[in-house]
Simulated assay, not measured.
Amino acid sequence: MNSTEGIEELSAKLKAQKDSIQTEEATKNAFVMPFISRVLGYDVFNPLEVVPEFTADHGTKKGEKVDYAIMKDGEVQILIECKHVGDPLNVKHASQLFRYFSVTNARIGILTNGQVYHFFTDLDAPNIMDQKPFLILDLLEIDEIVLPEIAKLTKETFNLDSVLSSAEELKYVGALKREIGNEFREPSKDFVKLLMVKVTDRRATSDNLLLFNELVGKACNQFLKERVHERLKTALGESDNRYQEVSGINETVAQIQDSTEDAIEAKQESEKSGVETTEEELAGYQIVKAIACSEVKPHRVTHRDSKSYFGILLDDNNRRTIARLHFNAKSQKYIGILDADKVETRYPIEELDEIYLFADQIRETVARLEAN
């Protein structure tokens, strides 16, 4: 069994058993030890490979233990600290992991609650564990991009140099993307000032910054919408031959762009159910709708939002799902595609434009639903 197969197996187990786990010890037995064994490939019953309740006295701290130490040639390679499944992972609560990281040869620290695994190293200062993880694995929201990085930590292919060389990029690219997203959603004063001085000679007074804060927000939203619009036109142009069944490209673009009614309906639904429909979900819906319009008329492609996912439907029928957008998790977005047996496969995406990569699958799904 390779690491990816182990992750998939453990994910299914977690879904089935998570709610029945009441203690940290049960979390270790049910999920963490299987992760060490089936995903990382170490023998949890061999003390030469895995040491539970690992102790390494540090200064005045005597007898403190870290939950697991993974060994190689008598040296500690990976330290693992566990919390109860469902508990939030706060690095401030991992004091043993920090201390042991500095007094052993370990270069990898893992903080986990059995569902989410935070992987740390010492990019910021030698032998001092970073405050922020360079890699995050959520077994209930698997990001396929991280799977090759997990494989580098397995017993058979353990390659510390390879892990560390990619850790810096993984950490900072992820952090930069989050910051860019934050600036687009809610521009900071520094960001507004940076752009303001490039387009006007006005002084950066409080009143001017307040004015440009609103203008920058509008510009960011328009920029994103224009990018989506460009991709819509490209997708519709590529599918021009099949589009003859509908009334023309210009009409379809107009129908897709006119999301005002969709936004009003989504807001009304969210007020009733507590579900919040985001602009990203509506933009993603528009892209899927544009792709689906090569197979059916636009008005037949609808959406329903829920707390779990944003569903895109044919004929407003939950049993005729075209795709699902899983945009609620902060760490990773997914598009879900259902096969003929209604089994959903989730694919990670970073940008809305990546939905176009699944255009053929979306069209196949719509054609299959239309044929049934």
Rank of each mutant, 00 (worst) to 15 (best):
S37I: 00
S37T: 04
S37E: 02
S37R: 03
R38F: 02
R38D: 02
L40V: 03
L40R: 13
G41V: 10
G41A: 11
Y42F: 15
Y42E: 08
Y42T: 01
Y42H: 06
D43A: 07
V44N: 01
V44E: 04
V44T: 06
V44D: 01
V44W: 08
F45K: 05
F45C: 05
F45E: 09
F45D: 09
N46L: 12
N46F: 12
N46D: 15
P47V: 13
P47L: 12
P47F: 12
L48S: 11
L48A: 12
L48G: 15
E49T: 05
E49S: 00
E49V: 00
V50P: 00
V50I: 11
V50W: 14
V50E: 15
V51K: 11
V51N: 06
V51R: 05
V51H: 09
V51M: 07
P52C: 05
E53C: 13
F54N: 04
F54Y: 14
F54K: 11
F54E: 09
F54Q: 09
T55M: 01
T55F: 03
T55W: 00
T55N: 01
T55D: 01
A56P: 09
A56N: 11
A56F: 12
A56L: 14
A56H: 06
A56D: 03
D57W: 14
D57T: 02
H58M: 04
G59F: 02
G59C: 04
T60K: 15
T60S: 13
K61E: 13
K61L: 05
K62C: 07
K62T: 02
K62Y: 11
G63L: 07
G63R: 07
G63K: 08
G63P: 05
E64M: 02
E64N: 12
E64A: 06
K65P: 11
K65S: 06
K65H: 14
K65N: 04
K65E: 03
V66F: 10
D67Q: 13
D67W: 12
D67R: 14
Y68I: 15
Y68F: 15
A69P: 08
I70K: 06
I70L: 10
I70H: 01
I70A: 03
M71Q: 07
M71D: 09
M71N: 02
M71S: 01
M71C: 11
K72V: 13
D73S: 11
D73Y: 15
D73T: 03
D73P: 09
D73R: 11
G74Y: 14
G74S: 06
V76S: 02
V76D: 04
V76K: 00
V76I: 07
V76F: 09
Q77V: 10
Q77Y: 15
I78A: 13
I78E: 08
I78T: 11
I78R: 10
L79S: 13
L79A: 10
I80G: 12
I80T: 13
I80R: 12
E81W: 10
E81K: 08
E81S: 07
E81T: 14
E81N: 12
C82A: 15
C82Y: 02
C82D: 08
C82M: 04
C82P: 03
K83D: 03
K83V: 14
H84C: 06
H84A: 13
H84V: 08
H84Y: 04
H84N: 06
H84Q: 13
V85L: 09
V85Q: 00
G86Q: 04
G86T: 02
G86R: 00
G86S: 06
G86K: 01
G86D: 06
